[in-house]
Design a protein around this nucleic acid. Sequence first.
DNA 1: GTCCCTGCAAACAATTTGCACTGAA
DNA 2: TTCAGTGCAAATTGTTTGCAGGGAC
Lengths: 152, 152
Amino acid sequence: MNNKKQIVDALRKRGNKVTPQRLVTIEVLLTFRQQHFSVEELFLGVKQRNPDVGMSTIYRTVQILEEMGLITKRNFDDGFARYELCELDEKHWHHHLICLKCGKVIEMQDDFLEALEKEIEEKKDFMIINHELKVYGYCSDCYAITKGVKFD
Amino acid sequence: MNNKKQIVDALRKRGNKVTPQRLVTIEVLLTFRQQHFSVEELFLGVKQRNPDVGMSTIYRTVQILEEMGLITKRNFDDGFARYELCELDEKHWHHHLICLKCGKVIEMQDDFLEALEKEIEEKKDFMIINHELKVYGYCSDCYAITKGVKFD
DNA sequence: GTCCCTGCAAACAATTTGCACTGAA
DNA sequence: TTCAGTGCAAATTGTTTGCAGGGAC
């Protein structure tokens, strides 16, 4: 599910129509790769290639793509919803380090929460589908600026 | 930082004034204990004791309390920001199991992410202040309803 | 030809802000 | 007395929706 053709086919299979607006949206989407994009950023990208697309079309398309499991919503408390492309094949979820000072988001591939998951499924009787770990703190740049002095 | 007097003192120390509205807000806040409350819920609670308080006052107070580190913002994708009381003393952060079907949020005390934290601080050069783990899946009730049939 | 999709504008909902007044210090 | 805090209403902002026209199938 990482190239245009596959996505287009999946759209048709769902009974959705493949319009030029959606094609452009998918193209732009695929250029985002690892980024966390907002709907507005996607909108601007699409507008560069086709200035006549409306904001609401992007919102509606994003909704469909989320239902399809192609993108996931993330929240970094910066005022608007952010999305990122899913790697549906791999089960390698990644984590986010969020700097409290500059807001930078660092991705971190790592998945040794498996032991924790097993425990949760047993002890809490909960079927796990996905998980998300956010670590808040200070990135090396921001920490350096203060020379280790505590923020407040 | 878990009783009224301490909070009031902390407010004064910050140079904030202690108004009746803020006192009531703090009182209601403390009754919430382990709950994840929205600003609106806090507002309704305050209004019961003092009907003349305005919504914006609550928003402004919540902002101050967050700056003071007394409450933290959480996001459960239900449309509005939620907050919860912090236990500043203990480092026992807790995790959230979120049911994708009914939206129920189950809390889970557990903190064996320490090994992971150590690794992050070393490998990524990142000073960790806090972390948040959200696990998405299906609670026992919702899973039971479908008799194990996969959701879609 | 049938509906789904579109763009636009208006509607929404959570949160913020401007302002004149009030009251804690 | 002073200036932060307040209530109200209006403004903002991200997102959703109603609708008439247009295009994919």
